[in-house]
């Protein structure tokens, strides 16, 4: 195990999160051992620390915020998801949310690690320049990805809402349902996450907007269109909920669909080339086209 290799660390992180997830499931299904009561939370913190270190190492390699390929972007979103959970966990005890989050982080992380195409070594290319030549764009990208992390947490909360609702409608006291928070609390948590996510995304767009407004040759990229679309979509969902037009299960389902669109939109972000012999094109060299 090389603790200086970001990929190996990410595998370790995925393993820790999956262990946390199974520990949470054991607890749910009454196989809880009192000695291991806080182990899930401790493991999440350890996993998060390794996750942070792995992204830091990758950041050193790429000389900037590691958002140059699909693996990095997804790992950054999952990191943001766990960070958001840890902040929420400080305010109230939500072990089940932690289980869901670690499950998603483990699955998403492992999946993206198994696909080599998701992680080209673009920083090893000839004439590689920093991923973000402009700090404002770097800020824009990292804040946008962090807001996606919040939207991931929102979708986790929405899934929990739908499970609890289904359990209540089926009129049975199933084990999973009895461990989940009340549906009214889940809806309140969802709307708060949505508000905070929109705030971060708005800030990200404003930062990017200021930079692009000063550029002479600005082209509206597909990614930017999707980001704006997501911002509008999430804002509309918020307004509809505020006006009591969209609530309950429909609200939860909408946020889950938007989360999948958010994830799918990552493919629109151009990924740096893996081929070390091939010089980068001028378009690839232009950082503003990447985010």
């Amino acid at each position: 195990m090389d603790f200086n290799d970001s990929r190996e660390l990410l595998w370790l992180v995925s393993g820790i999160y999956s262990f946390t997830f199974f520990l949470g499931l054991l607890k749910t299904f009454k196989l809880d051992l009192p000695q291991l009561r806080n182990l899930s939370f401790v493991l999440t913190i350890i996993g998060f620390a390794f996750h942070t270190h792995a992204l830091y190492l990758r950041g050193l390699e790429v000389h900037g915020c590691p958002l140059g390929n699909t693996l990095e972007r997804i790992q950054f979103i999952l990191w943001s998801l766990i960070l958001a959970f840890l902040i929420v966990r400080l305010l109230c005890r939500l072990d089940m949310l932690g289980t869901f989050c670690s499950g998603l982080a483990s699955l998403g992380g492992a999946l993206v690690l198994t696909l080599p195409d998701c992680d080209p070594n673009y920083w090893l290319t000839v004439n590689y320049t920093k991923l973000f030549s402009n700090p404002w764009i770097e800020l824009h990208a990292s804040v946008a990805i962090f807001s996606y992390g919040l939207f991931s947490l929102l979708s986790v909360v929405s899934v929990m809402y739908l499970i609890q609702r289904k359990a209540l409608l089926s009129r049975k006291f199933d084990k999973l349902g009895s461990f989940l928070p009340p549906i009214q609390d889940l809806e309140i948590a969802a709307i708060r996450l949505l508000s905070i996510g929109i705030l971060f995304l708005t800030f990200s767009i404003l930062v990017g907007g200021i930079h692009w407004a000063n550029q002479e040759n600005f082209n509206l990229s597909g990614k930017l269109v999707v980001t704006l679309f997501l911002w509008i979509a999430y804002s509309v969902v918020f307004l509809l909920h505020y006006r009591q037009r969209l609530y309950g299960s429909k609200f939860a389902k909408t946020t889950i669909v938007l989360f999948f669109i958010t994830f799918a939109s990552l493919s629109l972000v151009s990924t740096r080339s893996q081929n070390t012999n091939k010089p980068l094109t001028p378009e690839e060299n232009n950082p503003s086209n990447h985010q």
Binding site: L168, S178, P182, Q184
Partner: peptide, 8 residues
């Protein structure tokens, strides 16, 4: 308990 699962 059911009320708690709905309303908290």
């Amino acid at each position: 308990e059911l009320a708690r699962r709905i309303f908290g």
